[in-house]
Design a protein around this nucleic acid. Structure first.
Lengths: 340, 340
DNA sequence: TTGAAAGCGCTAACAG
DNA sequence: CTGTTAGCGCTTTCAA
């Protein structure tokens, strides 16, 4: 096991000073250097297999060329696509990606913030359910850029938000879905709403309640379910609903994973979708179009969302933009397929 | 925007030397230090919001506490789960994860290797379709640990492999699936095999050919298809097969995404699965159980695979294991559902 | 046209 | 029990 060659090694072998090696590497002092010197240095670099040490560069330049991306769960295709979009775009700008799964838990989200505090990354992108401005402030003060995928805490708890966000209006999108269900003639509509205490759940449940209220349909609390944002959560939620004396004729699932789980539960119980029970989802993950019946859902255009966030972030990192906080509100589409 | 406080700042404010701060931070010199000093330093750290600079630590300790994970596409649930397993396990050992999507392309895989060359990470985990020992050697020489998810290049091109691997025997697993199709009475069996030139394709296609040969069924080359490992690839491959004069009665899809795409194509053409055509998949991604009909497939236990790789890697990083290259060969299971 | 030197923030050997 | 000092590999100012 051999020590990595350093600029000093290259310099020695080429008979120049370390400074020269650095200049060759970075293309500084473009004209003043002899062609011969430059070539010799380059050649020696090749022979020795010299590769600059990024850690040392980072320390010196106070810049890591790395950004952190935190999401609840990369296995959820919605976040998988989101991360993928971030990755692809970040690479364009020369940034590497440190990935974190938080499961939406406070402690893991704070851990991701802490990584930023320790100077490992230049910026942070992601979803943060729990931290608020007080948690972000010290980071921002130290010059770390933060851009978030919008959720309630960022929207509603502060007058003057501190960080850039991209968001879709979860609540009105949810409302749109539930109204679609009402239009189809349903009035006993349940919701399987995902993990309690999280912004996506809160927002989507709010949309659900507003839709019903708007049509004068009282909310039957027994129809409001939800444990987490997985197929399993949907499966179990649906089983509970099917066990009710007076079961719903339609279900709004707060994401597609939940909807798919619900679909499976119906299939197992021999219920036809949408004949016996209609199911609407949220997110439009790729699988939504592939299950049977294909899922009616709401599209959030997640891959481009990741890209937008990287743009916001790199604008700050590169100083291209230094103005006040920006918030991009994305649109959404109701994708009507066969499950409703 | 304020400069991050350093140990020097803390030392100054606490009226001690920087060394003491470092010792307090790292718990070095455990007994010899006054309780009072330690507490004062800790207090000042809190007040100033001191967080150690990881970049400086890395430079000094020649250790980044970061590993790189490279996969073709994180959106493919197989790799998503794989990455998730790596993440969770790596965190146990205090490692962060630098994530790369390579799309299975040579240049992007080399870029991931290069990240390791530049000293950004202590180790590298992932799938590498193209690089061979010659590419790994310089890294290993410099003390970077590498552990790969096994694939052909690692298996067959060298006598004495250089890196640890975890693998499943792609070819015999594929063979098992095809034999299952034969057992079901099929003899005109097609394969939609994924991206040409990649180890998974080569291995699974080989298994397919061996299975047929073993039953004395000649391979009709017109039944060997495949463009990439996505639903789209499966969809298009199936359409080609359905356009044939004499179409197959069964299809082995080289992964579940392909199988699901194929399923959709059949549905669109009004063909019943498995009545008109049987479809077998590979990987057992979560969606496999949720599509209709649920997919017969081969399970690779991918999440635990990620964990195993992290184990192999951290054993090396921490010096727990210094012996010869280790190769873990995982088992696999045929999961018979309703698509065959 | 090239080189010497300082310093990024930290750890650790050594001295006092 | 605490402080001084060297140095990790690099960039960049300044001087030669």
């Amino acid at each position: 096991m051999i020590r990595r060659p350093t600029q000093a090694d290259v310099a020695r072998a080429a008979g120049v000073s370390q400074t020269v090696v650095s200049h060759v590497l970075n293309g500084t002092q473009p004209k003043s250097m002899t062609q011969a010197t430059r070539e010799r240095v380059l050649e020696v670099m090749g022979e020795l297999g010299y590769v600059p040490d990024q850690t040392a560069q980072s320390l010196r330049l106070r810049r890591t060329m790395t950004i952190a991306a935190a999401v609840p769960d990369i296995v959820n295709p919605f976040y998988g696509l989101f991360i993928r979009g971030i990755q692809d775009e970040a690479r364009q700008f020369g940034y590497d990606l440190l990935a974190y799964n938080t499961d939406g838990h406070r402690d893991l989200e704070l851990k991701a913030l802490n990584v930023a505090m320790s100077g490992r990354v230049d910026g942070l992108i992601g979803t943060m359910f729990h931290p608020d401005d007080a948690d972000f402030a010290p980071l921002l003060r130290r010059g770390t850029a933060i851009c978030l995928l919008g959720s309630q805490n960022v929207f509603e708890t502060t007058e003057q938000p501190l960080v850039d966000t991209v968001s879709i209006p979860d609540d009105s999108a949810a409302r749109m879905m539930v109204e679609h269900l009402v239009d189809r003639g349903h009035s006993r509509i349940a919701i399987i709403a995902g993990e309690p205490g999280t912004p996506p759940r809160a927002n989507r449940e709010r949309g659900y309640r507003r839709a019903l209220a708007g049509h004068g349909i009282p909310v039957d609390e027994v129809l409001v379910r939800g444990s987490d944002f997985t197929e399993r959560g949907g499966y179990e939620g649906m089983l509970e609903l099917l066990g009710l004396d007076e079961r719903p004729t339609a279900v709004f699932a707060a994401n597609d994973l939940i909807a798919i789980g619900a679909l499976v539960a119906c299939r197992e119980r021999g219920l036809r979708v949408p004949g016996d029970i209609a199911i609407g989802g949220f997110d439009d993950i790729p699988a939504a179009a592939l299950v049977y019946p294909p899922l009616t859902t709401v599209s959030q255009r997640n891959q481009s969302t990741g890209r937008q966030l990287v743009r916001l972030l790199t604008d700050r990192l590169r100083g291209t933009y230094t103005g006040p906080v920006r918030r991009i509100e994305n649109g959404y589409d109701l994708i009507v397929r066969e499950s409703t």
